[in-house]
Amino acid sequence: MDQIYSALLTMSLGVAGCILYFWGSNWLLGIIFPFRGQSHEQAARNLRIASSVRPWLFLGPALFFLFLYLVYPVIDSLRLSFMGRSGEEFVGISNYVWLFNDPEFQESLKNNVLWLLIVPAASTFFGLIIAALTDRVSWGNIAKSLIFMPMAISFIGASIIWKFIYDYRPTGSDQIGLLNAFVEYLGFEPQAWIAVPFWNNLFLMIILVWIQTGFAMVILSAALRGIPEETVEAAVLDGANGLQIFFKILVPQIWGTIAVVWTTITITVLKVFDIVLAMTNGQWNSQVLANMMFDWMFRGGGDFGRGAAIAVIIMVAVVPIMVWNIRNAQAQMEDR
């Protein structure tokens, strides 16, 4: 409990500090560049200076944090990826040479490509279907809320939920995992699903699809509702059936949103490591880049050079999406 109090105290101090900064710097600005009781020109000049400085005071803390926690580390990671394990000596591109010859990395890369192909596609697909279906039933909001719920669960919690489903008991004893019980009910042999190379990747991906579908559903459902009614009515009058309306009228109008959902999930996929860490920790050929990076950060005391090199590979995969996002946002701002 003491800990909570001290956290609350630190927090109040922090918040008070923030307020003091914003208020104090503003006040200081008024002292240094006063505009009352000055000659006309002087007041006008001071006012101009103060109003050109003030935005930077407002932005200051944010810029500081963004720089220290995001901009500088990106640059430093790039630098470190050319350094040795302690990050002190320059080793050229040998980290990258090692990386591309490392079987574990090749396997991670292959698995990551699979993840990137399957998870965004499956989540978006299910999200779209569920969004379209739930809009048609009276209890759709409850249904949506329940399907959306996994979003609130941590990756590691979700991993436990699914590990329990995949649980394996040898033939003959009662299965306590839902999947194996079902498989046995159908008359097949139970399997230790997460230890079957290649296919175990799919079982891990299901967890992320389970979590991300709710996100896709919420965004796509809003997009579907934003479609002008007239287009659907016109199609109905022309005699289109439900499926035709969905695929030929509705989906083409929300391509933009589908792309947004797809890319957002793609980025999540690149960063996810908790699921692999909890389920297999990369055993049975299920390694992915993010978990491999985490592993090298601490393996044998930590190899900063190699860890940074893997981080850079992940970053390189993100850059196209980043550029696309910025261009989209800029185009949108110009529209306004």
């Binding site: 932005l59 810029l63 963004l66 926690y69 995001l70 901009v71 500088y72 580390p73 990106v74 430093d76 990671s77 470190l80 990050g87 980025i267 690149l270 960063k271 993010a290 990076m293 985490f294 950060m297 900063f304 860890g307 940074a308 893997i310 981080a311 850079v312 992940i314 970053m315 993100v318 999406i321 980043m322 996002n325 910025i326 946002a329 800029q330 701002m333």
Partner: peptide
């Protein structure tokens, strides 16, 4: 420009930050 930077930073993978910050 600042806005573009913020939007760009939205997608920077956390993995990039860990090692430099840890150091």
């Amino acid at each position: 420009l600042l806005l573009a930077v913020v939007i760009g930073l939205l997608v920077v993978p956390l993995q990039m930050s860990l090692i430099p910050l840890l150091r």
